[in-house]
């Protein structure tokens, strides 16, 4: 029995979900892996406390977003992949949407991007998003508004006009 067995179990169960979030945040597979690995390396240190009464997944997700923002603030360059995102040959609507989304997400600020990922991928409420990002609900509302406005300008086909009302 290894003292890290509990952590291993947690990572085994949740790493793919966390990796998806990391990938949406960074837009690059290698960066996402680096990001998640560095966060998990910190989580190991807190594991005894987290496993007793904490919520490891929420903690890790929060650390992931904060680490991503910290990285971006240190102006770590985003390295867009030169390869097409998929090896599939058929460029259907969904594929085109993904290509467009990848491009427009790269044009958002790190906080706006985090808002989009947390609100529309993680489906967190405004209150939960504010908790993860350590900001006020008002800040979440305004950042989301700005992010959606930018998305709408860059890729109007992706964003419903009514979406903002729904999210409010």
């Amino acid at each position: 029995m290894d003292r890290h067995d509990g952590f291993r179990e947690f990572v085994l169960a949740r790493q793919q979900s966390l990796m998806r979030t990391a990938y949406l945040l960074t837009g690059d597979a290698h960066l996402a892996e680096d990001l998640l690995q560095s966060v998990l390396a910190k989580v190991v240190g807190h594991w005894p406390k987290l496993s007793k009464g904490g919520n490891p997944e929420a903690y890790t997700r929060k650390a992931l977003v904060n680490q991503y923002i910290a990285w971006k603030r240190r102006s770590r360059p985003e390295l867009p992949s030169a390869d097409p995102p998929d090896s599939g040959m058929s460029y259907d609507d969904a594929t085109l949407d993904r290509i467009v989304l990848r491009r427009v997400l790269a044009k958002l600020t790190c906080k706006q991007r985090a808002m989009i990922v947390l609100r529309f991928w993680e489906d967190l409420t405004e209150a939960q998003t504010a908790e993860v990002l350590g900001c006020s609900i008002g800040n979440v509302k305004s950042q989301t508004h700005h992010a959606l406005a930018r998305l709408r300008m860059l890729a109007p086909e992706l964003v419903d006009v009514r979406m903002e009302e729904v999210t409010r």
Binding site: F7, R8, A41, V44, F120
Partner: peptide, 29 residues
């Protein structure tokens, strides 16, 4: 689901499979 949500889901599916437990423990050490 809106196109944004489904595009996010599609993009998220491109995330590579990872196995990070041991690497994270080694990083911590």
């Amino acid at each position: 689901m809106t196109r944004l949500r489904s595009a996010l889901a599609g993009l998220a599916e491109e995330a590579p499979l990872v196995s990070l437990a041991d690497a994270a423990i080694a990083g911590h050490r």
